[in-house]
Design a protein around this nucleic acid. Structure first.
Lengths: 197, 197, 197, 197
DNA sequence: TCCTAAGCGAGACGGTACGTCTTGTCTTCCA
DNA sequence: TGGAAGACAAGACGTACCGTCTCGCTTAGGA
């Protein structure tokens, strides 16, 4: 049996879901930058004040959608990996597969601004996800000159991942998830190897 | 002796210079996104319509300033390089050195939006600069699996370069230009080597 | 008890009232032409977009204020008049009396542009007010040569009325409402008599 | 033989004539209010600074054209008049005849704003033209109650004249000059008679 | 069953940046 | 040296969006 609080939550969840879906459907139609709050409200049939009750702005809604999507990814199993430093990028294939379910529609042009937003937040999320691995492995690094700070290294991984992801979606490449993942690995692994072996 | 056209140009050049300088000085004080056109006008002592005569918007002014800065870079000599594929990133040290002259002041926070703009345009410029080298060298590539498209590869180089550049400026790192350039090379060279050797 | 619609109306009415009062208070301080929309907004403490929601421009606001003022006039009783054609100008004394309550302050200079606007609209309003009388009485006209068209005649009455009204306000004449009304009648009645007797 | 001064004058006169003709030709095409200085410059093939050398603004150019037109009127003979007070409106027929030569073209819509401008200036000119007559005749007035000030009376005559003139032009009435003059006299004479007999 | 509090839609509102437009001044060159 | 060309500062315009707000309606839970 549900408590009052839970029922209340159900209404709230439904509204938030409407908003997220409205935003994603709009992203399929036009550039993220040119979507304005009113577009979302009209699509979701939600009042202006309701929107601002739940989200501070458009970007926050986008980030909330991202978290939503990554939530299901996080419970996935880590694949056994040949090299220990490959664990740093364990997330890539699951995310590509997750995205794969949504990327077919029409345009899905996140554009330069949307990419920047996602980049900023995914980086924060990834940083948390891989912080331990990186720290652990960075202790063993010995070959790079000059030493690469953990901060810039995490940014590099996230940046390259988003780059490939975005190219995959925007170019509507026919590559399957594991194909684009191989591409990502081809770009990133040499640098990882150089840093950690 | 100057013609009428050239004198006219001199007035225009002066106005555009005032605007570029105003924008750069403002970037040192606050986030690029929060700079509004009127701020620039007040700083440059320029009328609103004059601004729009020369530039379509704030971003165009920023890009114009970037081109200005890169113009001096482009005339530099290519350093002889140990490996042929290193020619692809010949631009990195000159650009770091060029930026170095401007990055000290106070904040210099380009921020998420400004970074996106610069990224977008620098990538376009870099793409042109290295297109020949990439094409030439891509003929010889033999090791990567899967093959990496020229398009995504150029984006990868530009993206990583901007990432390092931005980190350098925003973190106010004490690294000298050649130090940060080494850092950039440490990130990018392993992947280049894997792609072209 | 009020419905939602009526409450909404109350907010809107209040905003429109603020704007009208701001404009009238500004007219007392400077020339109508030199009043810009921002002056009105600052005085009324109203946002720019709100202004344009309610009024297309400054002139429309002025006209709206005129209608407001004339609304109270229109419910007045027609005074019994010695001559039937005097009914055509029944409105003059009530309007002079209405204006009299507002014309003291300081400058109240409507100026050339404002006069033109008011003229244009008051003429339209007056035309409607007296259309019936004119038509009725024009059936009986017999003396003028050439016949005067109804159109030009109405314009003549309105034009002369505005002329006297404007002179009264701008010259800050000490004449009381009925005094200036007598002046108006002295100018207009001979022509009316000639036209309708 | 002409002196340098005279040659210079001729050039100046030519430029001013070009500007006047440009304005009048534009008035035939669109509303006076919506004509901007640049329209006149383009039509007259005159530089912006040249315009402002000769005229303070658009209105001054219009007034200058009016004076031009009235200059030829002023040399006309006063017609003998049955009543002495009719001398006050001696100008009406000559002006109607003068205008008659220009009013056929297409639109010739002076509009509300242009009318106001002309009104303002014609009133000044007429005031000078008839000042003596009015003063002379006002000494003899005995019938009006209340007494009508010379100021408002002149305005009344000018206002009514412009009204009829404007109606004649804008309605493209087929009335000949003496026909519209009769109309004007039908409106104005009863009041004149009442004031001066 | 009624009551009460919260979620909600609708949309008015103040604020503010935008890009456009026009004005009147100024500078430079040319005939 | 006067006029054409047109860059320029100034600033008003009307539009667009934002984030805040006020208002009633709905709705379900606890009284």
């Amino acid at each position: 049996m549900l408590t009052g609080k839970q029922v209340k939550d159900r209404r709230i969840q439904k509204t938030q879901k409407l908003l997220r879906e409205a935003l994603f459907s709009l992203i399929h139609e036009k550039n993220y930058d040119s979507i304005v709050v009113k577009d979302i409200l009209d699509r979701a049939n939600v009042g202006r004040s309701t929107f601002y009750t739940h989200f501070g702005d458009k970007d926050e809604l986008l980030v909330s959608g991202m978290h939503d999507m990554l939530r299901s990814v996080q419970v996935m199993e880590l694949p056994p990996s040949a090299k220990p430093y490959e664990q740093i990028i364990w997330f890539s294939l699951p995310v590509f597969e997750q995205i794969n379910q949504h990327r077919h529609a029409s345009g899905a042009r996140i554009g330069i601004r949307g990419r920047a937003i996602i980049h900023e937040h995914l980086q924060k999320i990834l940083a948390e996800l891989i912080a331990d691995d990186v720290k652990k492995n960075f202790q063993n690094r010995r070959k790079t000159t000059p030493p690469i700070s953990s901060d810039i290294f995490v940014q590099y991984v996230a940046s390259t991942f988003i780059l490939v992801l975005n190219w995959w979606v925007e170019s509507q490449s026919p590559l399957p998830p594991n194909g684009v993942n191989d591409l990502f690995r081809a770009l990133i692994l040499p640098t990882l190897a150089a840093a950690f072996e």
